[in-house]
């Protein structure tokens, strides 16, 4: 198990050195997106439109933060459960998305996409929204403002703590429960 500090945008080289269980601290610009925003992203692609952020080398954080209290860039901002974005993720990985940050299991299709397009799935600690928000230095809505907490935000993060759940080699950190 290794620890890496990575700066966005991420490259294939960054991704290929990561293995399930590695600790990764992300610094730079990342984008938020959850259920409703993903649906719109995929609809936009179907209409032949471009995406509201540069997808190549990008990191999407599955989060719907709380509103920023006065004096803070963002409110609490921990990960949401990732499987709900599974139907949309492979398309985005194909377009150059390099990492998603969330919590919980992914589908076989997503795991296959990680191998095929050189991507990773990173886990952050669910329910630690107050703590994780300390690593977010700036936030602004860049698309779908009407979605409120589900709008796409551009975040500037510093040493955002994650762990590699699924790597680009088919490995997974979550073990099968002992039933």
């Amino acid at each position: 198990m290794s620890t890496y500090k990575l700066t966005t945008p991420l490259t294939d080289e960054d991704i290929l050195k990561l293995r399930s269980g590695d600790i990764v601290y992300i610094t730079g610009t990342i984008y938020t997106g959850r259920d409703a925003a993903h649906k719109r992203l995929i609809e936009a692609l179907a209409r032949g439109e471009s995406l509201p952020f540069p997808v190549k080398g990008s990191v999407i954080y599955y989060v719907g933060p709380t509103p920023p209290p006065p004096g803070r860039p963002i409110g609490s901002a921990g990960p949401t459960t990732s499987y709900r974005m599974d139907p949309f993720a492979p398309t985005l990985y194909k377009l150059g998305l390099k990492a998603t940050i969330g919590k919980g299991k992914r589908s076989e299709e997503v795991k296959k996409a990680l191998q095929e397009y050189k991507g990773v799935y990173l886990g952050a600690t669910g329910g630690a929204g107050a703590l994780l928000s300390q690593r977010i230095k700036a936030a602004k809505v860049i698309a779908y403002e009407d979605l409120g907490p589900e709008a796409i935000r551009e975040l500037v993060v510093e040493d955002f703590p994650t762990v590699v759940i699924n790597d680009a080699y088919g490995n997974e950190l979550y073990k099968q429960p002992n039933l």
């Binding site: 933060p65 609490s76 901002a77 107050a130 907490p149």
Partner: peptide
């Protein structure tokens, strides 16, 4: 997280 949320009056979870 619980300590920070209580002190800063930040939601425990988003």
């Amino acid at each position: 997280n619980a300590k920070l949320a209580r002190k800063e009056r930040l939601p425990l979870c988003q």
